[in-house]
Amino acid sequence: MADPRFYEPARPLSISQLEKLSGASFEGLAPDGLSVSGVAPIEAMAAGFLSYAEKGAETPVNGAVVLTVQKHAASLRDAGCIVGISDNPRAAFARSAGHIFVGKELVQGEAEIHETARVFPGAFISAGARIGAECIIEPNAVIGPGVEIGEGAIIRANAVVTFAVIGGGSIIGSSSVVGKTGFAVVLGIEDKLRVPHFGRAIIGKDVSIGASCSVDRGLFGDTLIGDNVQIDNFCQIAHNVKIGKGTVMAAYAGISGSTTIGENCLFAGRCATTDNITIGNNVVMLADAAAMYDIPDGERWGGSPAMPARNYLKQLTQLRKMSGIKGAQGKKARR
């Protein structure tokens, strides 16, 4: 459910209002007087809350309001859900969910700032934020409502932190943005829609995030960065990504949505992943590697698409032989 530190209800929607906004059809089957008062992912449905299901739902909840396609409507109704039918449930949700719950805006007012914290001129700290002991908030940094900054953390100049919890001792680099909306776009329709986000960005203790990085908040759940993760400059961490403690990423890493990365991994420069994959613990990614598949613990991968490093290096060797390039010449050419 949306964290009340960061989100607030806008207004309940009646079924007729929901039909108009979403474009879904409830076929006159919703009880009279029913309204929708919240939003939730399909795996955490609640009575009176709006969700969407593109592939059905294993554990539907009585009284939940679900936008879905025609073929799943009957089974969800039989389980007690209030069902709206749409050819594109994700688009229907995107059109309507932001009218039910909204993110809190920056607002002047009292924040909880520890007496030992240092806040430089030009920094803006929104009402409801909490700044811990010995923190440093540098010039022109922006701290959003509800944000918690742990003891000894440093927010560098021009950084923006919203919808986030920052652990003690962590550093957010200059011009980095933590907690912004992720890049969730509804495809297959003429007018592309951005899906509203209701999650958070949770940064562990002693994390270092370099300059000009972006860490998106989760769509429903959280984007999680574990303790002692070290992220270089110009890196992108998408919504709902999970990074295990002790992992290190060099510059220009791009981690796609809902990717899970284990502990103590090493990503060389310009590494990337596709979405919804799992990378195990102690994995090494060579420079320019692009992971398209799950990677087991302890492996070393390279190439695009990425493969075990031994296979990748064999391919490079074969290509050089086929092209007549010797090792020394290849090194000279790379310079």
Score class of each variant (00 low, 15 high):
Val83Gln: 11
Ile85Lys: 03
Ile85Glu: 06
Asn88Met: 00
Ala92Arg: 00
Phe93Gly: 04
Arg95Tyr: 01
Ser96Gly: 11
Ser96Asp: 01
Ala97Gly: 10
Gly98Val: 13
Gly98Ile: 14
Gly98Lys: 14
His99Asn: 13
Ile100Ser: 12
Val102Leu: 11
Lys104Glu: 03
Glu105Arg: 07
Val107His: 14
Gly109Ala: 12
Glu110Phe: 00
Glu110Ala: 14
Ile113Cys: 10
His114Pro: 00
His114Asn: 06
Glu115Ala: 10
Thr116Lys: 02
Thr116Arg: 05
Ala117Phe: 05
Ala117Val: 10
Gly122Ser: 02
Phe124Leu: 05
Phe124Thr: 01
Phe124Val: 09
Ala127Pro: 11
Arg130Asn: 06
Ile131Gly: 14
Ile131Asp: 01
Ile131Arg: 02
Ala133Pro: 07
Ala133Trp: 12
Glu134Asn: 15
Glu134Met: 11
Ile136Glu: 12
Ile136Gln: 13
Ile137Arg: 12
Ile137His: 06
Glu138Leu: 12
Pro139Tyr: 00
Pro139Met: 07
Asn140Asp: 15
Ala141Glu: 02
Pro145Tyr: 04
Glu148Asn: 08
Ile149His: 15
Gly150Lys: 10
Gly152Phe: 06
Gly152Thr: 08
Ile154Glu: 11
Ile154Phe: 14
Ile154His: 13
Ile154Asp: 09
Ile155Leu: 15
Ala157Val: 03
Asn158Met: 15
Val160Ser: 12
Val161Asn: 01
Val161Trp: 00
Val161Pro: 06
Thr162Trp: 01
Thr162Arg: 01
Thr162Ser: 14
Phe163Ser: 10
Phe163Leu: 09
Ala164Arg: 12
Gly168Thr: 09
Gly169Asp: 10
Ile172Arg: 03
Val178Glu: 01
Val178Tyr: 07
Val178Ile: 14
Val178Lys: 03
Lys180Asn: 06
Thr181Pro: 05
Thr181Tyr: 15
Phe183Lys: 13
Ala184Asn: 03
Ala184Glu: 12
Val185Trp: 06
Val186Thr: 04
Leu187Pro: 02
Ile189Asn: 10
Ile189Leu: 13
Ile189Ser: 01
Ile189Trp: 09
Glu190Met: 04
Asp191Cys: 13
Asp191Lys: 12
Lys192Leu: 09
Leu193Pro: 00
Val195Arg: 04
Pro196Gln: 03
Gly199Ser: 03
Ala201Val: 08
Ala201Cys: 03
Ala201Glu: 14
Gly204Trp: 01
Gly204Lys: 00
Val207Lys: 08
Ala211Gln: 10
Ala211Thr: 09
Ser214Val: 15
Arg217Val: 08
Leu219Gln: 11
Leu219Pro: 00
Phe220Thr: 06
